[in-house]
């Protein structure tokens, strides 16, 4: 059985090594010229001579920072409510897990309808409470935030469920003591619950950061990177370099830059998980 383990490792690492090799070549699928070794040139070009890459990276970072913050704040706050539900918790959890498990592409195709300005239900509902809804997908100042909202809709429930599970596992006696001392609900939450679930918050933030960093499906379906290039994330730009422009060496180098960034998150995550969670 030990050989199967090593074989598997080989299978999962082989594409990574092959990709690294491709990233050192000028590898144009459309041109008749064969791939040529260019060393680090692809990396140098991406980092020093490709404003579109930097622009896509800054949009991606915007999504990560905004999305993670909103999801954590909403998730922790709502989890504090969920844990008070008692027996209803399991039903609430099941309902909340539905958005999480749906394919992002399904979410995005329906987002096209929901965000539609002429006949979509969202702006209609907003108009009922007197709000003039924005042009969700067609306005270059709004569209990236609409992508963020989509992610918040799909993934906040995940944060709620995790935080609720974490809060549920905290020792009851601390709370009883705090309530005896007459602490208000807010003070108990602020001074006891929050510090105790802080490791879980860190881990969740890292998991969500890595996922949002890879945002592709929503953008591809909802906006295709537009209007202009206002929603072009790194993953989308990387995809275009590969399957639209067929510059495989360049695309592979870009994917490796992404991999390095993700690895930083992953190694921090692993260190945190090793320390052990409550």
């Amino acid at each position: 059985m030990a050989p199967t383990a090593l074989l598997l490792l080989a299978v999962s690492i082989y594409p990574l090594l092959y990709s690294l090799r491709i990233s050192f070549f000028s590898w144009e699928l459309t041109a008749a010229v064969p791939p040529a070794f260019v060393g680090l040139e692809n990396y140098v070009r991406i980092l020093s001579d490709d404003p579109r890459f930097w622009s896509s990276l800054s949009k991606t970072v915007y999504l990560v920072v905004g999305g993670v913050l909103i999801e954590l704040v909403l998730g922790v706050a709502l989890a504090a409510l969920v844990v008070r539900c008692g027996k209803g918790r399991s039903v609430v959890t099941a309902l909340l897990l539905i958005p999480v498990m749906i394919a992002p592409v399904v979410v995005a195709t329906q987002g096209i309808v929901i965000f539609n300005v002429q006949w979509g239900p969202l702006n209609y509902l907003l108009s009922l409470i007197g709000i003039d809804g924005p042009v969700w997908l067609g306005d270059r100042h709004i569209a990236l935030r609409t992508i963020m909202l989509t992610d918040v809709w799909q993934w906040t429930p995940f944060v709620i469920v995790i935080m609720a599970a974490g809060m549920q596992s905290l020792p009851v006696d601390i709370y009883e003591a705090a309530e005896m001392d007459g602490g208000s609900a807010w003070r108990i939450f602020r001074h006891i619950t929050l510090p105790l679930i802080q490791p879980l918050i860190v881990v969740t933030a890292l998991i969500r950061s890595m996922d949002i960093f890879k945002t592709f499906d929503y953008v591809y379906v909802l906006t295709g990177g537009g209007p202009g290039s206002s929603t072009e994330t790194v993953s989308l730009y990387n995809f275009l370099q590969g399957l639209e422009f067929f510059s495989f060496g360049y695309a592979a180098a870009m994917s490796y830059i992404q991999l390095i960034i993700i690895s930083v998150f992953a190694s921090v995550l692993i260190r945190h998980m090793r320390k052990g969670l409550a």
Partner: peptide, 21 residues
């Protein structure tokens, strides 16, 4: 944990070599 981190990598990293392969 290291196995798990392979799963966290962006899928485009393996998409490109797999396409050529």
């Amino acid at each position: 944990m290291w196995i798990l981190s392979i799963r966290m990598f962006p899928p485009v990293v393996s998409a490109i070599p797999l396409f050529l392969l």
